[in-house]
Design a protein around this nucleic acid. Structure first.
Lengths: 236, 236
DNA sequence: AAGTGGTCTAGACCACGAC
DNA sequence: TCGTGGTCTAGACCACTTC
């Protein structure tokens, strides 16, 4: 169980502040030598620290110290930018794709619509302090938002809803589970295929109770933590 | 990238229902031979399926197909037993430890009390269909619940609160993040040290707004998914 | 007692990122 | 182009589970 000692040793250095968040580790071969072990054992140690959210990897780029996670409150309408700014982080978003398409099966299931319904699908890549942390995919029921494709919603969809359509989110059904990053999503996040992820699915209703959109958010699992306050319902 | 093909192949078999939830895989050496690969590569494939929550491991016992996760709603007061029964699962709980102690630092921080305050700490192991899925650690402010140690709260603390003390949960502050299993907790869950986990922290208030307890729940990450509905607060 | 998973070694080649 | 991480091989020993 060398790898446990290596883990602890690296962990101590992180917690002592010797390794700053976001900084890169030395090459695997050098670290392995420093700990007098094989590369495989070293990678085992780093992988466990990755599971724990203490370090992360960028595909073929190396290992880095994880910055502190962003607190995410699924029960408020703060958009990504607002959330990040409140936490003193630097947000940025990129539009990856945007199309008007017949609703794919998985989204149709969430939206409770038939498979032919037209939806806007758009994917955005979210950065925190220039680190890519999430890919968000939105499906918006097209008939409720004419000409949505002409708007500038890259930063905030909620803002466009409110200003241009007088629509406010009022209720959301959310669903959070662990998952893993694959294919294009992994690539966009500069992650290795199979990296652990947090998947947040939301289905949103407007102020009239109408179901208007849903979104799938794939987060690097160390970049987010869910935090909220709930008033409890007593059931008997 | 053999391991991707192996992953897909195993995945297909799971989704086709050829491998039933909870069933054990053949020995690693046999699987490796079947896929004409080395044990290390096979383990790589299984580890990624583990990250994704499709399979799980019991320490030195082998690999198993993950049963479907339990939906966990942090905004209702359903206890573990009720939650499980509603989902058609078979719950069981074991008391691991129970003591009256001065509040340890981490709990004191959550409870907002001084370090000397007396608390009941108790740890329970939760099973679903005889699979150990979570270790829950509760810290209860002792002065509010005299003789709590004499009660039978193994199944449900909420029930004891209500029946014996006329106390109801009314508000909870929750915090969910990925983590990893270590030491005793890993052992209790029959998991390897470093296995991925979901950590749910809750701080609970009673009907008078009084902070009464907190709990830390370490879940095998494939055994749980968070699901809830929220009425949104508009902030401007 | 046999078989299994956990851990580890000492290499290797390739494709990609960084320069 | 050079070094790096991603991937893979072909073993080995031990402690533990299972029979």
């Amino acid at each position: 169980m060398q790898y446990l000692k290596i883990m602890e040793s690296i962990n101590e250095q992180i917690e002592a502040g010797l390794l700053t968040p976001g900084s890169k580790f030395p090459a695997e071969r050098k670290l392995a030598e420093a700990f007098d072990t094989s590369r495989i054992t070293l990678r085992e140690a780093l992988s466990l620290l990755e599971s724990d959210g203490k370090v992360f990897r960028e595909d073929r780029r190396g290992w880095f110290v994880s910055p502190s996670p962003l607190s995410y409150n699924p029960t408020n309408t703060d958009n990504f930018k607002t959330m990040a700014l409140k936490a003193g982080r630097e947000p940025r978003s990129e539009l990856l794709s945007s199309q008007l398409i017949p609703c794919p099966r998985n989204a149709a299931k969430l939206l409770g619509v038939e498979a032919f319904t037209k939806v806007f699908k758009f994917e955005r890549l979210r950065f925190l302090d220039e680190r890519p942390v999430a890919v968000t995919i939105n499906y918006v029921i097209a008939e409720y938002f004419p000409r949505l494709e002409e708007k500038n919603f890259i930063e905030s969809l909620t803002h466009t809803y409110k200003e241009d359509y007088k629509v406010l989110y009022s209720q959301t059904r959310y669903h959070i589970r662990t998952s893993s990053l694959q294919g294009d999503i992994a690539q966009a996040l500069r992650a290795t295929s199979g990296s652990p992820a947090m998947l947040v699915e939301r289905v949103n209703h407007d102020q009239n109770g109408r179901l208007i959109d849903c979104d799938l958010e794939y987060w690097r699992h160390d970049a987010i933590n869910i935090q909220s306050v709930a008033t409890l319902t007593q059931e008997d």
